[in-house]
Nucleic acid binder design. Structure first.
Lengths: 246, 246
DNA sequence: AGAAACTGTGTCCAACGGATACAGAGTACG
DNA sequence: CGTACTCTGTATCCGTTGGACACAGTTTCT
């Protein structure tokens, strides 16, 4: 599972290089895209633990070892799956201000992460990003180009938004909702311990627990904070929170 | 690796129940705390992949199977490790306003996550929280009790802050800094692709890449956003961003 | 003193990721 | 047109992993 140096170079070729066309020998029966798609289907349904080279091979009607002709190892397969699952970022809406652009962008990213729960675990720690991943990043920075923020700050905004979208996709169930199992389990856990966690108990008493409520709340706060900085930087008027937030 | 229902109940006892004292048979040579500590040491040094029942047992001078007398399986061991690694939350500073309380809280949490890089991967998806984990949550809600925010919003703030702290702990190297390998690799990747990612290239040109810079930036934005909401909710004056942010 | 309960150990197994050697298929070159 | 070369998919094998299970030794209660 440990990715070696040669595998790393190989992964770079797979992610960024042009698909090389061999001239001799039998034609390959598989495609990188098909393999990644098969892996995504399995991981979506059964999680990363259910993702096995064997299962991927079975779903493609090949032997397990055939996959190693295309991919150096499981880690690299997962990296390709991530790149394919994220896909290209949605095109920027013309004429929208930075705020609505980032709002839309974050929700789209949230959606991708929610559709592929395994993507969260895969994106921990430093790794080699693919073209799609960088394209997503590019879009954020582009939206912030004329806001007066420095390059560092633009990147920090990206990190902040990515973190929020990714984090909340994990809290929300993928797409079919088993309901408020999270909040329900929480409430059950607190029962009989009210004096130990008084504030939590009180807070949870009024919890509606809408699925996307936490996403909306955090996103609004983050964008408010960014807007305050941009406005102050421009020497303009202080920020007034929109009425809808009240 | 898949946690069954019986194991789940057992884990609840281990996390929340009182340590049961058997009356007959030989005295146990190990302690849950000692096992968790050993696991933490290994995982801190070599990551989750390096964490093996075998290695944990070796470091305690016992056989691998001896561990299963204390812990149902590896998943539960990791859960106990997480609870021990997080520890109790720091005591709330007396007389501090909600903002400085949350700021301090988030930095402390960030520090715990940075000290134990494996904690990130362990906290993906729904799980059974331990007493310490809930105590951390309780502190946030307590700090926000008199701010006019609803229970939902208080919890959403917690989710937002936890996500940010956890997310940035992953970007920053644990403690010994191999430097700006993240930004360096980024720049190398962009070389020759400037026309494809123009905004990213421009943004990265001015990147200092301080370790905690992104943490500070995001935290300031988030707290600004929360403050804007609280102030507006109270019908007070709009938020003015502090001079230090300019 | 015996029985009961609990501990740690030794042995065994299935599943996993991966290495390696090989046989067939297809292409380029004489 | 045949032969050599190259690439493909397969079969077999191995080390490591998490975990089941039965057993023997130890301590305590009756």
């Amino acid at each position: 599972m440990e990715t070696g140096d040669a595998d790393q170079r190989r992964l770079y070729e797979l992610l960024w290089g042009t698909p090389r066309e061999p001239r001799r020998g039998p034609r390959p029966t598989l495609t990188l895209a098909a393999i990644a798609r098969a892996g995504i289907t399995i991981a979506d349904a059964e999680g990363l633990d259910g993702l096995t080279m064997q299962r991927v091979a079975e779903s493609l009607d090949v032997t397990k070892m055939a996959l190693y002709r295309y991919v150096p190892g499981k880690a690299e397969l997962v990296a390709l799956m991530l790149e394919a699952a994220m896909g290209e970022p949605p095109p920027p809406p013309e004429g929208a201000d930075w705020r609505s652009q980032l709002d839309d962008w974050a929700r789209q990213l949230f959606d991708r992460f929610r559709r592929h729960p395994w993507a969260h675990a895969v994106t921990v720690g430093p790794r080699l990003p693919g073209p799609n991943e960088l394209a997503w990043l590019e879009r954020v920075v582009t939206a912030l180009t004329d806001t007066g923020l420095t390059g560092d700050e633009q990147l920090d905004v990206a990190v902040l938004l990515i973190g929020h979208a990714r984090n909340l996709a994990q809290h929300a169930p993928p797409t079919d909702a088993p309901g408020l199992s999270q909040e329900a389990g929480f409430a059950a856990l607190l029962r009989g311990r009210e004096e130990r966690f008084p504030a939590l108990t009180a807070a949870l008493r009024s919890a509606r627990g809408d699925g996307d409520q936490a996403l909306d709340f955090g996103l609004a706060r983050i964008l408010d904070g960014i807007q305050a900085l941009i406005t102050a930087r421009a020497g303009g008027h202080p920020v007034v929170v929109a009425e809808s937030s009240l």
